[in-house]
Design a protein around this nucleic acid. Structure first.
Lengths: 181, 181
DNA sequence: CACCTAAACGGAATGCGTTCCGGTTGTCAA
DNA sequence: TTGACAACCGGAACGCATTCCGTTTAGGTG
């Protein structure tokens, strides 16, 4: 696989800038594909080659803060990053993810809605992997993969939005889901 | 609100029969709205008046077994129905719902996919309400609503389908999610 | 510098869910 | 029985995500 061509990179930047602008000025419902294409001065075909589909575009818009968060739990300071006991890191991770989810609820909703498996893009799997690892360290006899999914599931954007949950409620509830032994 | 007109009832039956037939003979992807309309000999407008949207149609197709299940946990024999200790009923309910989910994964996938909140139709709320009640009885100090959502969330069709989970795995995982105290 | 090709481009065409609306038909009251 | 109205009907029209494909261009090669 060869490097991205210069014009392609330029267009990606133009698209992301225009899309971010659209969302902040006119809200998430202005993020139609034709809309974004027109605002960026490219054809819709270009959007699809770059981002796959609408959910991919939404993910790309979230990507910046996502990368930051991943950096934080992979190599940042404890308790989110390495150094703290695993159980504490789990709580810090879930609380951090709660804040992130609430902060970008609109875009996440779109990212989740597009396809049946849209949620399970790169970021979700990164969270799942990280959480499963910490669970294995803390409770070796558990099905870590299932437990990780189960702890992430209540943070689904559509559930959070539907119930109108707030941060403290979610965090307290998640804490009670953690195994006691 | 007046009673359903005779022709409307007749059409509802025709549509459900034709749709069920389509699904069993040609699979879930044959359940397009125009497709169903043609097979039932009605216009697409009629489908929408009757079922709201595609997710509603999928729900209606699931409805028969859904009603049966609701009957079972509301007033059937224990441990699913009344009579057993609440904690036992919770496990019976989750295990039963697991079986139901796996049995109708295709239709549930469609029902969930249509809109952001499609999942939260009548059936979901019935499950949530029932589970929350049992949780309150068993662990009075918990946020029963959140815990109910959290226990139902791992049964989301898209998660189950994506991971390819089987019954024993799900049931064992759910059991470990139940509070210990 | 000219050539070549893989990659990128744009926008028309497609497919499908959903909405709209002018005509039709049960149902009920007089 | 008849008249009137609300509910219903069909299918054309619409909006929008996604795909297709003929054209253009970046960037490496001789």
């Amino acid at each position: 696989m060869t490097r991205e061509r210069a014009d392609a990179a330029r267009n990606r930047a133009k698209i992301l800038a225009a899309a971010a602008d659209l969302v902040t000025t006119r809200g998430i419902e202005a993020l139609g594909m034709a809309e974004v294409a027109a605002a960026s001065g490219v054809g819709v075909g270009t959007l699809y080659r770059r981002f796959g589909d609408q959910a991919g575009l939404a993910h790309a818009l979230i990507d910046a803060s996502e990368r930051e968060f991943q950096q934080a739990f992979l190599s940042g300071p404890p308790p989110l990053g390495p150094g703290a006991p695993p159980e504490e890191r789990i709580r810090a991770f879930l609380h951090g993810l709660t804040d992130r989810t609430l902060a970008q609820l609109d875009l996440l909703l779109m990212a989740e809605t597009a396809g049946p498996f849209a949620r399970f893009g790169g970021a979700y799997e990164a969270y799942h992997h990280h959480l499963a690892m910490l669970i294995t360290q803390t409770w070796p006899d558990l099905d870590a993969s299932f437990q990780a999914d189960a702890l992430l599931a209540p943070l689904a954007a559509n559930l959070v939005a539907h119930r109108g949950l707030d941060g403290p409620t979610i965090k307290a509830g998640l804490d009670r889901l953690l195994p006691k032994a």
